[in-house]
Design a protein around this nucleic acid. Structure first.
Lengths: 338, 338
DNA sequence: CCTGGCACTCAACGCTTCCGAGTGCCAGCC
DNA sequence: GGCTGGCACTCGGAAGCGTTGAGTGCCAGG
């Protein structure tokens, strides 16, 4: 086990390196943090920390930089979450409160997160599978054309066009609309398939084709694959990544474009509480030199989606975690109100 | 006026520079293009072209590179639009046809454009002001809470929550819905304000507050500011920009984040036909070393929105223009079908 | 008006040198 | 036992310096 002082040395290394972006040496350390010991002692501690794999030297005769393992220890044991200040909290709230619809909420959240953390922000739209149905609407747009509009309790709206196999009268449509709503309004999405199973039985033979088409479209809309949307922002912050630019930034931009990758990334994160994935802990290779801080958010106690930021492993973890947590909290509130 | 051969020299310089990314010299030029004259002659031509401001030297004793003015001449006079090949066209069509809704159409278009041009793609959602109303729906979600859903002929759906000043009965709601639809369905957005002006007069005093709220929300939704959305993609292609990376890429990423800037950019482009803005022709400073190729697209003959790509001034103009034009055409078709 | 020849320029490259931050180790001290 | 000052060593990065060669402008001759 590492002694208390060695942990302090590690903490100091992480803090300095995050601040200066340069390998930190023993002398500089003793000057900037009063550890009460001489550089020589610190050197011994550093050698020990290096043996354990918490820090590394880019090359001989350079200072040390934390390894992923070092950051991990720092996050887990040595640093807390830095709470937002009161003015910051007020600013967050103000900024989010102006939103007019769900798109706007998400867009504002992304902006806010990117600005607060000076990193790339990722916000997932409230998931459908964890939501409940607020309303289903069927609109006849042409004799054999119906539009399905699905509204969730989180304010999300999905629409689909349906080509009917046979003309479908207004009365049949109203009938179907009413039956659908009475069955699934207020119910969870996951329950919907079961609830509409036998719905077609109530209809005339000639209408059943259309009813089936509507139902299958409805079920399709609920399928996980179609529903996971997200928004990203703050990519300009990538330019602050490091000197060895193009090599680092390229795969990150690619990852950000691949929504699938990002969704997986957020999905893998623990369901409750904040998750920090550091460097190689990220399964996706392109993100091996980045850290991802994510957390679930939701209107009630339950998380309906996740949000987070992607930044260099060399990031201000306490501050980032504080911002992410605070934003998630306020977004949850906003959603609950709407 | 420049002689025919000098124009050829300029064309050759642009082509070579776009291909190699390196300043091109007189000798290399005569070797790769058979101009039928010696390097010395080409040098004279180059000197003339430089005097006119079409090309420049990064430093003495280096080759020449085209200036913005040079590219402009190239685009206007020396190069056409390279049409897509048949297989490419088929691929475009296939790719776009799988789209399930408007969001998907836009998303696919962005991907496609980015991939075809290997540059950053920007696609504007079909504008509301140029669209017509397909349907308005009012949903009662709570006693004093109404959701307004607006569906356009381009498949776009907007929704807004409305808090009613007083409880609003189902019958009143149905009445309002019917009246609204009969008045504005099929009409252009710009005509809507005039058409609903006196609608509140048909209602009881107690309901007028709510009617007014609904109408004002409806009108708000139509306002230019709220409606211009766009999607971007292919940012990873920015890494191919140049060697002097961070400096160039930073402002571009920033511009891309500023939807306002991008919308202005697309908006400034001519309404019909393809627009190419080269380097400093772009009003926004951050895009001074990029070119923007944009074109309107629409379901019928008329453009409802624009799309385009942002790339380095050193881009393959004919190819890019061909891709942009082709994609716009097919997107228009897809929209017309849905 | 084109061409070959020629002197000139200058960024890029490779080489060497120098510097100093940082290290590991060790003998001595508390 | 653990801390300290001292010391020799390492090695990346900056600075200086010649070499190279692509590219130029100019000129006299065809």
């Amino acid at each position: 086990m590492l002694s208390e002082r060695r942990l302090q040395v590690l903490r100091a290394i992480v803090q300095d390196y995050v601040g200066t972006e340069e390998p930190v040496g023993s002398k500089a350390l003793t000057e900037r943090h009063n550890l009460g010991v001489s550089p020589a002692t610190v050197r011994n501690d550093m050698a020990a920390l290096e043996d354990e794999g918490f820090i590394a030297q880019p090359h001989t005769s350079a200072g040390r930089i934390p390894t992923d393992k070092g950051y991990r220890l720092f996050v887990d044991k040595l640093a807390g979450v830095k709470p937002m200040t009161a003015p910051e909290r007020r600013a967050i709230q103000n900024f989010l409160e102006g939103a007019v619809d769900l798109d706007d909420v998400v867009a504002r959240t992304v902006r806010l997160l990117a600005q607060l953390t000076r990193q790339v922000a990722v916000v997932q739209y409230p998931s459908l599978t964890r939501s409940t149905v607020r309303h289903v609407e069927l609109l006849s747009l042409a004799p054999a054309r119906v539009m399905l509009v699905l509204i969730t309790d989180t304010g999300r709206v999905e629409q689909r066009m349906i080509d009917c196999p046979a003309p479908f009268g207004e009365t049949s449509l109203a009938d179907l609309r009413a039956r659908l709503n009475s069955r699934i309004t207020g119910r969870r999405f996951t329950d919907v398939p079961r609830l509409v199973e036998d719905l077609h039985e109530a209809f005339d033979l000639e209408d059943r084709g259309t009813v089936a088409a509507v139902l299958s479209t409805l079920l399709e809309t609920l399928v996980e694959e179609n529903e996971e949307r997200l928004m990203i922002g703050g990519t300009a912050n990538l330019t602050r990544f490091g000197h060895d630019f193009p090599l680092t930034i390229r795969p990150v931009l690619e990852a950000l474009e691949e929504q699938v990758v990002l969704l997986k990334l957020l999905g893998e994160a623990g369901d409750s509480g904040m998750t920090v994935r550091i460097g190689h802990e990220n399964a996706y290779e392109g993100l091996n030199s980045t850290s991802v801080v994510s957390v679930g958010y939701g209107s009630g106690g339950e998380a309906v989606a996740k949000l987070g930021v992607v930044g260099p492993t060399r990031m201000d973890y306490p501050g980032t975690m504080g911002a992410v947590r605070a934003v998630a909290r306020y977004v949850g509130q906003i959603l609950a109100e709407s």
